[in-house]
Design a protein around this nucleic acid. Structure first.
Lengths: 191, 191, 191, 191
DNA sequence: TATGAATGAGGATTCATTCAT
DNA sequence: TATGAATGAATCCTCATTCAT
């Protein structure tokens, strides 16, 4: 989660944390300013408005998520291995950054989302789409619309990551791997 | 979605619709009053505060969701048939009531959620939990924590219902049944 | 200057007075509220915004000015008499309502003016235009564009009314009548 | 309108233009800085405050106006000729510098005016006073308070110059000369 | 029950001004 | 001189809530 420096980063990080805790509405700019250690007006040097700030937090997060997802991936690895790695990468990212997960969900279901014209918006799903399409083409996955598959996988990862956080269901490492297996098994052809 | 009458229902319905469209923050009580055709003060006869109103909308929705889920279910039916029916019931409910879907997600990821002490909070998952436990016990599903399974199923249904709405991925009836099959296969298949 | 009642009138009157004294910028809504004896929010029940309030003050004033101008006028009276009366009516109005005069000037030279789509905008000059046209047609005034004449007369009246207020030149009743004579003499044909 | 050089002049000119367009309130220092091509802080090297800047713009303009007014004037010329020349000089100046005209009016009706202790404040009227007094003394003008006459003449010129700009009344060269004649006739004619 | 005018605390945003470089 | 990031007081406006009718 590192890449910007100084006040701008402080503002973004603070906003992310506060919004996770108090929601968009419950997070006044004055509070962001105070927690980030800057003056209220300073925020407006870096971001045009509260909306813009929130959208920037989204982009900032997205960049990190995409990076995390692709770690240790390589076209030369076996498909199933790649899938398992990708699944775990994303799961770990969301799981280790609960702020992101909750912010993300709040954002997607909010009117803010409409303000985003960023192509970054869904790089994750685009990447997944390609990966799924390849799996179908090469016979690793059952015949199905790759777009549908990638939404399912993404939903599955997020659901799993949220499980403990929101549903108070705690899972063991073993269960985690089982969940990954369930979605993989479901997507592969019946033997 | 019918069961209350008169102004109270009008207020609940209006609130639901407005919040889906504009979010919690973007929905002032005055707007609810105007759209519902009542005076601002009238809302406070039925609900203690805005928070209470929002929580009541949640309960109201939940009641409907639970009802929808259980339609045509019976213990005497075959397990897989029951699962398929239950899946489709919930999918259809969310799919036909997009307001509910979005409100629900917003609510769950918001600070309002903490205000709910209602046991109704997760009747859906409780019902699912029992159903999954039975499936595991009777050998229809693979050995797994029933709680985990029900969260996965619920996540899968919601993901599917949101697919078209939020991700602009449209799915055919055939794909829909395939998705249902994927999650079933994943939960039953042994590697 | 009477016609509305209650808080709305209080707000308009207070605004007029404060703006004359401190200018548009120097008159915060909070001050208007305090002086008018209402809560800040109350102003927004009656006026959409500060801009709208200011434009409303203008309309409010205009209505009064038009009324004052036409007092004791009648088509059956001699032309010169009508002119003298009209001149004095307007002069007296501006002179007795210095708030109006200054507000008016500030308004006309400000960006607020562009927000006015009110046809009331220049009823005074329209009325004057007709009156001047008649005077030219009937040979009482020299051959000249009536529009030009009415602007000259209006400018003359306002200049006179402002004289004491802004230029610290005080004039006697006799000088006043002389001024009126000067503009009349200028506009009538050379003998 | 030339006499200072470099950044100071750029700041003054920019301020004048921006204030005409957007008013005192609508012209932030940051905008002046940007349009003038200097840093915000630089303005404060030349002017103590925004108020001081605005008052300086006024003085700057005044200097130019006075200069323009006296062009081609000489005590040895015939009185009526001198009046006609003076009238046209001022008219032309205001007419060719609409920024000045509007700024001037805004300034005079604003609280800024009170901050001016500059004797320049009304050099124009002082000059006019002397000229009118001479006219009355030498029998060119009717018996009247010279101060009153000069205010009338000044008001007449400004009214005329504003006519096109603010009232959207366009006047021909011929009408222009007629207006000048009207005010002259009014001031000289005896009934 | 129902109304809606009134409230006023709270929040987003602006902008004159400063100061370290 | 010149810069422009940073400041934070001040301002406009919103909106949940109350209460007299």
């Amino acid at each position: 989660m590192e890449q910007l420096a100084g006040k701008k980063k402080a503002i973004l990080d603070t906003t992310l944390e506060l919004i996770r805790e108090h929601g968009f509405h419950g997070t006044p700019m004055s509070l962001v300013a105070k927690k980030a250690g800057v003056a209220a007006g300073t925020i407006y040097h870096y971001f045009e408005s509260k909306d813009a700030l929130i959208c920037n937090v989204f982009s900032y997060i997205m960049t990190n998520a995409i990076e995390a997802m692709q770690q240790n991936d390589s076209e030369s690895l076996p498909y199933k291995y790649r899938f398992y790695n990708l699944w775990l990468n994303l799961y770990r990212f969301y799981s280790h950054n609960p702020n992101v997960l909750i912010f993300f969900e709040q954002f997607v279901n909010s009117p803010y989302q409409k303000l985003m014209h960023d192509t970054k918006q869904d790089k994750i799903r685009q990447h997944l789409n390609l990966f799924m399409a390849q799996g179908v083409r090469d016979g690793f996955l059952r015949e199905a619309n790759p777009e549908v598959l990638s939404v399912l996988v993404l939903g599955n990862i997020i659901t799993t990551a949220k499980m403990m956080r929101l549903r108070h269901v705690s899972i063991t490492e073993q269960e985690l791997l089982q969940i990954r297996e369930i979605i993989w098994d479901g997507m592969t052809k019946r033997s």
